[in-house]
Computed example of a mutant assay.
Amino acid sequence: MRAEKRKKKKKILITIIALIAVFVFTTGGYAYYLWQKAASTVANIHQPIEKSKKRNSDIDINNQDPFSVLIMGVDERKNDKGRADSLIYMTVNAKTKTTEMVSIPRDTYTEIIGRGKTDKINHSYAFGGVQMTVDTVENLLDVPVDYFIKVNMESFRDTVDTLGGVKVNSKFAFNFEGHSFAKGNITLNGDEALAYTRMRKQDPNGDFGRQDRQRQVIEGIINEGASISSVTKFSDMFNVIEKNVKTNLTFDDMWDIQSGYKDARSNIIQHQLKGNGTKINGIYYYKVDDSSLSGITAKLKQNLDLKK
């Protein structure tokens, strides 16, 4: 029975969508070991959140119900609780084979749910952790957050170094934090990848350009992760994930999503929250345009099969 199970799962693929989440693949005699190690890792990074009040009923992944996930890139440094500097909300629909994605600028001026004040959305994590950030995003976009993946942005360094570097396509040349980045296709080590994803003020597209560079690094990590072949690298990657990732996804959830929703990755539609920068009491904020927000909300709800 066990031998049959090993044969069926000879190639293991577990995808933790996020930003850093590379899960893996292999064939050969150590496949069962990796399966157990992956399950153990996911159990250790599991963190539950409250059920969304935007849902009237539970979703059923086995039935391929559309679902949403909020990816939180948190810049947690020593002696600093951190802020959610990268927020990417996605809806995934297996039946239409479509993933809708919107990045939320870190300076977005909005109500912080549970705090009783209006502030930059990235402060929600510092005020109330994952739950307050989830509640605030739900309120801003008027959509449910079914799952979240929180990644410590510092882990970019360890992840990239474990993989031996990642390839990106820099849209312009710039210098940042002691590193020089040429225009075009370049390969980054861990320190360079972290700096590449942090630079914002020199980018003509501001926060949107920064988010694009973060996505490039994540894609590079996934591409490099798919070619991992040694047990040592697998073990190192699991250790990085265990130290830097939290999610309410279970191991079974991940397996069901990988097997039942993989076609939705072939059609990714990205949206941009249009708005304008402004200063209030000398502090910079990004105020989202109401018509842009309502239009994106409608598209996200449609992909979740929710009423507008």
Rank of each mutant, 00 (worst) to 15 (best):
A3F: 13
K7V: 15
L13E: 12
T15V: 15
F23S: 12
T26V: 02
G28H: 14
G29W: 15
Y33P: 00
A39L: 08
A39D: 08
T41I: 09
A43I: 09
I45Y: 06
H46D: 01
Q47M: 03
P48G: 01
I49T: 14
K53V: 09
R55G: 03
S57W: 04
D58L: 03
S68N: 06
S68G: 03
V69I: 15
I71K: 01
I71E: 15
V74N: 06
R77S: 00
S86C: 01
M90N: 03
T91G: 04
V92G: 00
A94Y: 12
T98W: 08
T99G: 14
I104Q: 02
D107H: 04
E111L: 03
I112A: 01
I113S: 08
I113D: 05
K117I: 08
K120N: 04
I121C: 05
H123Y: 06
F127K: 00
G128S: 01
Q131G: 09
Q131W: 05
T133C: 09
V137I: 13
E138C: 02
N139R: 08
N139Q: 13
L140S: 03
L141R: 00
P144N: 09
V145D: 06
V145L: 08
Y147C: 14
K150M: 03
M153L: 12
D158S: 12
D161E: 05
T162G: 02
L163S: 03
G164R: 02
G165Y: 02
N169E: 12
F176K: 02
G178N: 11
H179P: 00
S180W: 09
F181A: 02
G190A: 10
L194K: 11
R200C: 01
R200S: 06
R200Y: 05
Q202T: 11
D203G: 00
P204T: 07
G206P: 05
F208N: 11
D212M: 10
R215E: 07
R215S: 07
E219N: 09
I221R: 14
I222R: 13
A226S: 14
T232V: 10
T232D: 09
K233L: 05
D236G: 15
D236H: 15
N239L: 08
N239Q: 13
K243P: 10
T247H: 03
N248L: 03
N248H: 07
F251K: 02
D253F: 08
Y261T: 05
K262F: 04
D263R: 12
D263H: 07
G277A: 12
G277W: 15
K279L: 04
I280D: 12
I283A: 07
Y286L: 11
S292H: 13
T297P: 07
L300P: 00
Q302L: 11
L304N: 05
D305Y: 06
K307L: 10
K308D: 10
